[in-house]
Design a protein around this nucleic acid. Structure first.
Ligand code: MN
Ligand code: MN
Ligand code: ZN
Ligand code: ZN
Lengths: 138, 138
DNA sequence: TACCTGACTTAGACATTGTCTATCATAGCC
DNA sequence: GGCTATGATAGACAATGTCTAAGTCAGGTA
């Protein structure tokens, strides 16, 4: 994620303690936090960071294509730092755990012309739902 | 949708003017309204119906499996009366128009075991995004 | 038909998530 | 070190959703 900060600095981003902290919080694999979760974790590292700044920073990262918004649950948006490798999501219906997954095949090919209603289709999002090993054991 | 009301009466549902109106509003194909949209249209038919009742009724219909919740946009949930024929959604990124679509093949088969992380996967949601003919023309 | 009762509806308070504005602080340039 | 535009902040506001206490009525009963 430090390369992210470099890229952004190259694009004229001012480097602030707040932005660094948000980037740190988003670092890792299978990370899909809500804005409030990002804020809580950011506060642990930089107590005075405000909600507005977290929202602003997340919005900028999304605009810049460095973070994805995903809507796997039907409540808050989640923010996904894995923006450079296309992937889909596998969600535990019980506990909400989310994993990045890479299905084979091209789901676009599964939508015949007769089902396109004249749309130009450019993108597909797939969400797999099920039960994670932890929840299955309990 | 009148068969719906019959089914529900059979399950012990009390038939009220409010529930009838919500069911009427949800009647049709490619219907994917937000709770507020359902409320507005319901008010046109029954001015005194409350927001709480619309939310309650939609929630009950979802619990009973008669209506689906879909999260095609990242804001309000949408309510889909097409609960008995499995289908996916095609969304116009510009105007938000939503069509029911029926892809060929089984998307579950595209998720290899190595990408399942020990989950028991039971369900797949697919959202196709693109531009509708109207928006493409404009 | 008239009544009774528990299920239903209502208004509005409250909660959660997200946006906006006015003001204050500071990163990065000179 | 000082300037200035960009960024951060608190808190008001907006949109969506949940809950509660009180009143209403659908449908069974006599
Ligand atoms: Mn992801
Ligand atoms: Mn649908
Ligand atoms: Zn789980
Ligand atoms: Zn359109």
């Amino acid at each position: 994620m430090s390369d992210l900060l470099e890229r952004l600095r190259g694009r004229g981003w001012r480097m602030t303690a707040q932005r660094r902290v948000v980037a740190e919080v988003l670092d890792g694999e299978h990370v899909h936090l809500t804005a409030d979760e990002v804020h809580s974790r950011a506060v642990a590292k930089l107590p005075e960071i405000s909600r507005a700044t977290v929202y602003n920073t997340l919005g900028e990262l999304v605009s810049l294509g460095e973070v994805l918004e995903v809507a796997t649950d039907k409540r808050a948006k989640r923010y996904d730092p894995n923006a450079h490798r296309p992937h889909q999501h596998l969600v535990c219906a019980r506990c909400g755990a989310i994993r990045d997954v890479h299905p084979t095949g091209n789901p676009l090919a599964d939508l015949p012309d007769s089902e396109r209603f004249g749309f130009t289709v450019s993108e597909v999002e797939v969400t797999y739902r099920g039960t994670c090993p932890n929840c299955a054991a309990a």
